[in-house]
Computed example of a mutant assay.
Amino acid sequence: MWGPRTPNLTGQTIQFWDYLDRRHAGLDFGAVHPDDLGRLYVRFHASGDARPLDALRHYAARVDGEGWVHPATRRMTLHWKRHLDLLGVHDPGLLRDRPVALPVGETVERLARLRLCVDHRRHGGPVYLDGTRWGMPLRKVVGTDGHANYLLVILRDLLPRLTPRRRVLFVYDDDLAHDYALLARVVGALGARVERLPLGRVPLGGLVRTSRHGGWDEVTIDRLARLCRAEAGPDAYRLGMRLYFIAMLKRTSGETFRPDLLRRALGRAERMLGEARGDGPPEASAAGCLRPSGWVDPYRLTDGLFARRSRPVSRTLLDAVFL
């Protein structure tokens, strides 16, 4: 489930927009290369030039009320959609506006009735998700400035959709594991069946860092796409990227990104495509990778595909899942 308003309501997004509008007002953001926008993002975080969120409520109001998107974010989103199309990745609705289901106040009231949050707003204080019954600390989700963080925005979207036994799979950055463990408990208390799939970051130069710190200039998706597509066809590019980032690096790899191994995965992908046979439904190949709640573990499935040596891979599986 995806909605652009959710990431666009986060504090770091709104503060970056404000920085761009104050410090780079003359730029045509729709014409700036996405890599240069990324460098501006790094510069913003290094500068410490972030205004308080209570001074930026007009941004949140436009996003929440109209689905407005800053031109820089729209430019970056179009760029990512083009690359997701090249990779054959399903578009969850990157450019399709969808209002968040509930307002902040109603979400907090629902959680408070279920004793899942502590609300100090009437005293001028914050709102906390309350996981103390599970031995978890309180987690602030609305600050004294009135800004709701990403966890509350997720709950604003999820609460009306949760029914008893509804299955929910959270896919998230492993650095956010504590937040999603609490979120899973809250959603589980509302009757849903929850599973989690944390994704690790790939080290660069032996270090795992967020994009805000930079150091990614040589490994942007643009550069990787040019490197790979100069050496492999469209299908081998799609399959090779999956073999490298899923089967070779695994979910929480400690190994630094290596272009030579990516090239090896591309070569393996071309051989697999050349040898593939159109046999059997893809469900048969995926059956051994099913989780109890019914979703297929992409790491087990891809690892199994990569490990096959004795017989050709099913072309049906490749077309349905990987291409």
Rank of each mutant, 00 (worst) to 15 (best):
G88I: 03
L94M: 15
F257P: 09
L261C: 08
G214P: 06
P92Y: 07
D303H: 12
L53G: 03
T302S: 09
R263W: 04
G93L: 13
L86P: 03
T302G: 00
L262M: 08
G26A: 13
G200T: 04
L182G: 12
G88A: 13
N8G: 05
G205M: 07
R315A: 15
D97I: 07
H24Y: 15
A72Y: 13
H58P: 01
D235P: 01
S293G: 02
V168M: 09
A265Q: 06
L301C: 11
R122D: 15
P92S: 09
H70A: 14
L305F: 14
P52D: 08
R311W: 15
G124K: 06
L151R: 03
E270S: 13
S253W: 02
I221L: 15
C117F: 03
R193M: 07
R226E: 11
R96F: 08
E109G: 06
H178R: 09
D36E: 12
R98Y: 11
N149A: 00
T220F: 03
T256P: 12
P298H: 08
G200R: 02
H79I: 00
G105K: 05
F16A: 00
R23Q: 14
P99E: 04
D235H: 12
G280I: 00
A320C: 04
R51E: 12
L190G: 05
L239V: 11
R110V: 01
G288C: 01
L138A: 12
A61V: 07
G48P: 01
L323K: 07
P312G: 05
A320F: 06
A284N: 00
F29R: 01
D36I: 04
P259H: 09
A31G: 05
Y180N: 11
T144R: 11
W68M: 03
Y128S: 13
G304Q: 13
P234Q: 02
P126N: 05
R165D: 13
Y299S: 00
D85S: 11
H33F: 00
L159N: 07
G280V: 00
A50D: 05
G191R: 10
P52N: 07
R229L: 15
R300K: 05
F170Q: 01
D157P: 02
E270F: 00
R268D: 12
L159Y: 10
P52W: 10
D49L: 07
P137N: 08
G88V: 04
L56F: 06
H24L: 14
V142I: 09
V63I: 14
T10W: 04
V108W: 09
A181K: 13
S314M: 10
H178Q: 12
D35Q: 03
R309C: 09
V321Q: 01
R133F: 06
G131T: 06
G233N: 10
A61F: 01
